Computed example of a mutant assay.
Amino acid sequence: MITVYGMSSSGNCHKVRMALELLDRPYAWIETDSAAGQTRTPDFLARNPNGRVPIIEREDGSVLAESNAILCWLGEGTTLMPADAWERAQTMAWLFFEQYSHEPYVAVARFICGWTPADSPRRAELPRLRERAGEALAVMERHLQSYDWFGGQGLSIADLALFAYTHCADDGGISLAAFPQLRAWLQRMLALPQIEAMPSPPGLVATA
């Protein structure tokens, strides 16, 4: 049994839930609201000094943090992690892309729109974030013009990592209208019974 400390409206946590559901692995979910300070308690910091979700805890008390590292551990030896060395490397490349070129813009725009007040000075960051998010989505669109999935011949942990914040990009005022292949990929993902959309941010306000 795995215990997951996660926040349901967080894409990084949603990745882990989707992987566990696809793999039909039993787990316990402990809802942990980082926005309410629940990742800064002494009990949580004893598990993850970085004070972030998601983390998973095994029955022996060992803990693993960082969403994409968790995906790699869960995916090992399953269809979610390609067996071919080249396809594995491609999968890892997309995981790095997600964390360095995608999440810092798509997810941060969503955070600003969903968790900060309408008069927050952070709103000034949105035009740049949306521009950089569009660049990342364009990279994904070009890939999907030739391939159905990211990283391998079928669904992999790279698809889960990229789906998490892409499918709700509109929460941050980022339109997918210009990316038909990306929208088709999202529909392929959502057609799987274990894949669901995330809840909207609790404080989502106008993004104009």
Results as ranks from 00 to 15, higher is better:
residue 34 S to R: 10
residue 64 L to E: 00
residue 133 A to R: 09
residue 102 H to M: 10
residue 74 L to H: 07
residue 124 A to P: 05
residue 81 M to F: 11
residue 8 S to F: 13
residue 83 A to P: 08
residue 12 N to Q: 05
residue 203 G to M: 13
residue 98 E to N: 14
residue 138 A to E: 13
residue 195 I to A: 06
residue 107 A to M: 09
residue 59 E to L: 12
residue 141 E to P: 03
residue 134 G to P: 09
residue 192 L to A: 06
residue 110 R to D: 03
residue 7 M to E: 06
residue 78 T to P: 14
residue 151 G to T: 00
residue 51 G to K: 01
residue 55 I to C: 05
residue 38 Q to F: 12
residue 116 T to M: 14
residue 118 A to K: 11
residue 146 S to E: 15
residue 165 Y to C: 07
residue 37 G to W: 06
residue 153 Q to Y: 08
residue 81 M to G: 04
residue 59 E to M: 04
residue 83 A to T: 12
residue 189 M to G: 12
residue 83 A to Y: 09
residue 126 L to W: 00
residue 192 L to N: 01
residue 58 R to K: 10
residue 49 P to F: 07
residue 29 W to Y: 08
residue 188 R to H: 06
residue 28 A to T: 12
residue 98 E to L: 08
residue 110 R to V: 10
residue 180 P to W: 05
residue 175 S to C: 06
residue 98 E to C: 07
residue 151 G to H: 03
residue 190 L to Y: 10
residue 33 D to A: 13
residue 154 G to V: 08
residue 44 F to C: 05
residue 93 A to K: 13
residue 154 G to A: 15
residue 59 E to W: 02
residue 116 T to C: 13
residue 4 V to N: 06
residue 122 R to V: 02
residue 4 V to W: 03
residue 206 A to Q: 08
residue 79 T to M: 14
residue 168 C to S: 11
residue 174 I to M: 06
residue 8 S to N: 08
residue 191 A to Y: 04
residue 160 L to Y: 00
residue 137 L to I: 07
residue 128 R to F: 11
residue 199 P to Q: 03
residue 123 R to A: 04
residue 70 I to A: 07
residue 101 S to E: 13
residue 23 L to Q: 02
residue 150 F to A: 04
residue 35 A to W: 15
residue 149 W to E: 04
residue 170 D to S: 14
residue 198 M to T: 00
residue 199 P to Y: 00
residue 26 P to Y: 09
residue 170 D to A: 15
residue 151 G to A: 09
residue 71 L to M: 06
residue 33 D to E: 04
residue 126 L to D: 02
residue 159 D to K: 03
residue 2 I to M: 12
residue 102 H to A: 09
